[in-house]
Amino acid sequence: MQMITKEYLTGRLSKGLRDDNRTPFSYRTISIRTNEIPNAEGSAIVELGNTKVLAGIKLDVSEPMRDTPEDGNITTSAELLPMADENYDIGPPTPIGVEFARVVDRGIRAAGILDTSKLFIEEGKVWSVFIDLYVLNNDGNIFDAGTLAAMAALKTCRMPKYENGLVIRETQERLTTNNIVTSCTFVKVPGAKIIDPTSNEEELADARITIANDFDVIRAMQKGMSGAFTTKEVNELIETTFDKSKELVNILKKNTGD
């Protein structure tokens, strides 16, 4: 970021004003499109302002984990595509990519979106649900966009059948989901705490926190970056999350035919 942009943004943020004239606790425009990749059992593209994340879901028959022989598996991975941000590089997953996938994964798991016992097929065979998050363009807050994309893709995901040793993917059945989990991400910039930061705002920030919830239950939290939060600040942000998540849930429901 150029120095002049940095100074300009910092000056405005300290007066509670944001680059795009948002208030501290408002989201950018959110759009959700599902079933964009019909070959995948489930898919969704979420745009959060200029941030764009695609979630694709495939279900395969596989062996259960040794410690949970009667449960299916959920695997969440993320690709921060090099085209999406000049700071993303080709190569193996970076710490931020791994953190992103794991934070989205924890929200979905902790909220019990999928009942893994229902993914059991027969002894030694279960369904594995692969959630792949593709960041197509990064303008900040991939966490909330990723959770929304995964959630929208799961809610509109087909449920394949397993018959006579074959996987039949063309079905009318839907994967059963329970609950809705969303996340709210905040950063601390000089003089303010703001929701849904852009890339520029993330660059100015020294601390980040993501809080995933369904209704008034906290399902997952993750603090990031080297800055600190006070206990009072975290309490306030939890309350704000409970409030703002209602908007996210409504948008999700509207776009997934719920």
Partner: peptide, 25 residues
């Protein structure tokens, strides 16, 4: 950080109400 109880790492998964979160902290 014990000097002023700043939170420098916070992770959580499972389910907590606000009250339970405060009790845990």
């Amino acid at each position: 950080l014990p000097r002023n109880n700043e939170i420098v790492l916070l992770q959580m998964d499972g389910s907590l109400t606000t009250k339970q979160y405060s009790d845990a902290m």
